[in-house]
Amino acid sequence: MPLLNGDEEISGVLRKYRNIAVVGISDKPDRDSYRVASYLREHGYSIIPVNPTLKEWNGIRAYPSLSSIPGDLKVEVVDIFRKPEAVTEVVREGLQLKPRVFWMQEGVVNREAADLAVQNGVDVVMDRCMMKEHRRLLGGK
Score class of each variant (00 low, 15 high):
residue 3 L to C: 07
residue 130 M to I: 09
residue 4 L to D: 09
residue 64 P to H: 14
residue 106 E to G: 07
residue 107 G to D: 11
residue 138 L to G: 06
residue 48 I to N: 04
residue 48 I to G: 06
residue 49 P to I: 05
residue 137 L to W: 05
residue 57 W to S: 03
residue 126 M to N: 09
residue 13 V to Q: 08
residue 56 E to S: 14
residue 50 V to W: 06
residue 135 R to K: 15
residue 24 G to V: 00
residue 101 V to Q: 03
residue 132 K to V: 03
residue 58 N to G: 13
residue 9 E to P: 06
residue 63 Y to N: 11
residue 50 V to F: 00
residue 16 K to R: 14
residue 135 R to L: 03
residue 73 L to Q: 11
residue 60 I to G: 04
residue 116 L to K: 13
residue 113 A to Q: 10
residue 61 R to M: 11
residue 78 V to K: 09
residue 24 G to T: 03
residue 134 H to F: 07
residue 78 V to Y: 04
residue 45 Y to F: 15
residue 83 K to M: 12
residue 103 W to G: 08
residue 81 F to K: 04
residue 38 S to P: 05
residue 38 S to R: 11
residue 14 L to H: 08
residue 9 E to W: 05
residue 77 V to I: 15
residue 52 P to N: 06
residue 39 Y to M: 10
residue 136 R to I: 05
residue 16 K to W: 02
residue 101 V to H: 07
residue 7 D to W: 04
residue 56 E to M: 07
residue 27 D to W: 05
residue 103 W to E: 04
residue 94 G to F: 01
residue 29 P to K: 00
residue 71 G to T: 02
residue 61 R to S: 11
residue 99 P to D: 06
residue 61 R to H: 13
residue 52 P to I: 03
residue 16 K to P: 05
residue 38 S to N: 11
residue 139 G to P: 01
residue 71 G to H: 08
residue 115 D to Q: 15
residue 21 A to L: 08
residue 33 S to F: 05
residue 41 R to W: 13
residue 113 A to V: 11
residue 89 E to G: 04
residue 67 S to P: 01
residue 43 H to F: 10
residue 22 V to S: 01
residue 130 M to D: 11
residue 135 R to S: 00
residue 95 L to D: 08
residue 136 R to H: 04
residue 46 S to G: 14
residue 99 P to V: 02
residue 117 A to F: 14
residue 11 S to I: 11
residue 20 I to Q: 13
residue 21 A to E: 00
residue 17 Y to H: 14
residue 91 V to T: 09
residue 137 L to Q: 09
residue 98 K to S: 08
residue 90 V to A: 02
residue 134 H to M: 12
residue 64 P to M: 00
residue 52 P to D: 00
